[in-house]
Simulated assay, not measured.
Amino acid sequence: MTEIKLFATPETGVWEPTPDGNRRRIVLYTDELMMVEFAFEKDGVGWLHSHPHVQSSYVAEGRFEVTIDGEVETVSAGGAFIVPSGLEHGVKALEAGRLVDCFTPHRADFLKTA
């Protein structure tokens, strides 16, 4: 079994481009949970999509227009949102910013490129 990392630093993980033109880095993960940081430039879009994972997102920096199942809200730094399994969701960065997302279970599709 691979040793599980319990702590991360700002240097943990490798930034990689996302298919929608933003960047992400895997911070930490176990089989049950994954933490991923996403970075967006102003007007960057996280395409509408859905997945079976439950997702919680914390806005670490910036301001985002967040759409979840057709409902749209603006969420600023310090705010957060949860996406239940299977709901269509996406974001638009109203200014440059960062999201810290947690997924349960972990996103195996992200590990294929990590």
Score class of each variant (00 low, 15 high):
27 V>T: 14
113 T>M: 10
114 A>Q: 15
110 F>Y: 15
33 L>P: 01
51 H>F: 02
78 G>H: 10
62 G>F: 04
60 A>M: 11
59 V>R: 00
108 A>W: 05
38 F>N: 02
85 S>L: 03
30 T>K: 14
3 E>A: 15
74 T>G: 08
114 A>C: 07
108 A>L: 11
103 F>N: 02
10 P>W: 12
23 R>N: 09
91 V>G: 01
57 S>T: 15
102 C>L: 11
33 L>K: 11
111 L>W: 01
78 G>T: 10
92 K>Y: 11
42 K>I: 15
80 A>Q: 09
55 Q>W: 01
40 F>S: 00
67 T>K: 04
51 H>D: 01
22 N>D: 13
80 A>P: 00
37 E>N: 11
60 A>D: 14
100 V>T: 07
54 V>W: 02
72 V>L: 05
42 K>T: 15
94 L>D: 09
64 F>S: 01
72 V>Y: 03
44 G>W: 00
51 H>W: 02
58 Y>D: 12
110 F>D: 04
56 S>T: 14
77 A>Q: 10
91 V>T: 14
14 V>S: 12
13 G>V: 07
64 F>T: 04
5 K>E: 08
104 T>H: 01
42 K>C: 14
15 W>I: 05
103 F>H: 04
22 N>H: 10
5 K>N: 10
12 T>H: 09
21 G>L: 08
53 H>P: 02
60 A>Q: 12
10 P>E: 15
61 E>R: 08
91 V>C: 10
24 R>D: 06
44 G>F: 00
8 A>I: 09
100 V>F: 11
54 V>H: 03
4 I>Y: 14
108 A>M: 04
49 H>Q: 13
91 V>H: 06
102 C>Y: 08
89 H>Q: 11
16 E>W: 04
45 V>K: 15
84 P>H: 05
5 K>I: 09
82 I>Q: 12
18 T>A: 07
74 T>L: 09
24 R>I: 05
68 I>D: 05
12 T>P: 00
18 T>K: 09
98 R>T: 13
110 F>Q: 04
21 G>T: 13
108 A>F: 05
18 T>Y: 11
1 M>N: 13
81 F>H: 08
55 Q>M: 06
23 R>E: 15
18 T>M: 09
57 S>F: 06
63 R>G: 03
63 R>S: 14
48 L>W: 03
51 H>A: 02
53 H>V: 03
2 T>I: 12
70 G>K: 02
50 S>T: 11
52 P>M: 03
7 F>E: 14
105 P>K: 05
106 H>E: 03
49 H>A: 06
81 F>V: 06
96 A>R: 13
39 A>M: 09
109 D>I: 06
9 T>F: 13
2 T>A: 12
27 V>N: 07
43 D>E: 15
37 E>D: 15
15 W>H: 12
26 I>G: 00
30 T>A: 13
100 V>I: 15
89 H>M: 05
59 V>M: 00
29 Y>K: 03
9 T>I: 09
83 V>K: 08
18 T>R: 08
84 P>D: 08
46 G>R: 00
34 M>A: 07
70 G>Y: 04
110 F>P: 00
68 I>T: 05
60 A>K: 02
27 V>G: 09
106 H>G: 01
107 R>T: 03
110 F>M: 10
106 H>C: 02
101 D>M: 00
88 E>M: 10
71 E>K: 10
25 R>F: 05
91 V>L: 11
21 G>Y: 13
27 V>W: 07
100 V>W: 13
66 V>R: 02
26 I>T: 09
44 G>M: 08
